[in-house]
């Protein structure tokens, strides 16, 4: 929800980044305030997933210009784990499988790390078990997933639910969900989107990175941004997503080209 007096959580100015020496982000600008839902859309290779990874601090990407303020502080002064503890969350497009680590163990470790950072008490395994089972109901997840290795052998939908479960546990200020809708059937999409909607509130913000408009039928964005060649070239209301769905991306870049 857009409110004029909301606090700015994320302020991206002229962000440039490279991977393997190739510039992918060529001056991204984005302002995200508390309570808002943003959708970043764009064709493949336009830099939207790179943008998500750069914000989270993926080591393969090198920031070459611009600035990002997270709640007023320089994001790039923080290591990836410090960003997570400060309240930045990245929902992975391809969540990593970690054979040998029980999901419950991983979730509790992550939860307790962030709780400690916030000056709150850690939960022991039993307390955590009750707590996480409650959160799993939100995503209609079978408690069996606690005993299995992290993401190992999970279906695409199960992996994405596990990502949103982590978001529910860590209660981030800004959640960037990278292609959370990819590989989901319609039921899984409804459940995952329902979970995200329940987690959205006036104090946090959600940035959805997506290729298709489909997800936005379930999670209503306040703003839709279109990326093209490493920049946001158009910003509009929710209806822009529908327009992209019917007309494709080409007209946006043509219009942007004409404007430039």
């Amino acid at each position: 929800m857009i409110r004029q007096d909301s606090k700015t959580l994320l302020e991206v100015r002229g962000l440039r980044a490279t991977v393997n020496g190739i510039e992918i982000l060529k001056g991204m600008d984005l302002t995200v305030k508390a309570g808002e839902v943003h959708a970043i859309m764009g064709p493949n290779g336009s830099g939207k997933s790179t943008f998500a990874k750069v914000l989270a601090g993926h080591p393969a990407y090198v920031v070459t210009g611009g600035s990002v303020l997270f709640e007023g502080k320089d994001l790039f002064a923080l290591a990836p784990e410090e960003r997570a503890r400060a309240g930045l969350f990245l929902g992975f497009q391809y969540p990593i499988e970690i054979p040998g680590v029980a999901n419950a163990q991983f979730l509790r470790l992550a939860y307790n790390t962030v709780q400690t950072q916030r000056g709150k008490d850690e939960l022991d395994p039993l307390e955590f078990d009750d707590f996480v089972r409650e959160k799993m109901k939100l995503l209609e997840m079978n408690p069996d997933f606690l005993d299995r290795s992290v993401n190992e052998g999970f279906s695409g939908g199960e992996k994405k639910r596990n990502e949103i479960l982590q978001m529910a546990l860590l209660e981030p200020r800004v959640a960037i969900l990278d292609e959370t809708d990819s590989g989901l059937d319609i039921d899984a999409l409804r459940i995952v989107a329902g979970g995200v909607n329940q987690l959205a509130n006036k104090d946090n913000a959600i940035v959805l990175v997506t290729h298709y408009q489909r997800l936005l039928n379930y999670i209503e964005p306040d703003y839709v941004h279109v990326t093209e060649a490493g920049r946001i070239v158009k910003t509009g209301p929710k209806s822009l997503a529908l327009e992209l769905e019917s007309r494709g991306y080409d007209w946006v870049s043509a219009a942007a080209g004409a404007a430039a």
């Binding site: 080591p59 990836p80 784990e81 990593i96 991983f106 992550a110 790390t113 962030v114």
Partner: peptide, 15 residues
């Protein structure tokens, strides 16, 4: 694996 390390760090775990 660097991606695995990053995944865990992105959840707040130290290096």
């Amino acid at each position: 694996d660097a991606d695995e390390v990053f995944y865990l760090k992105s959840r707040g775990l130290s290096e």
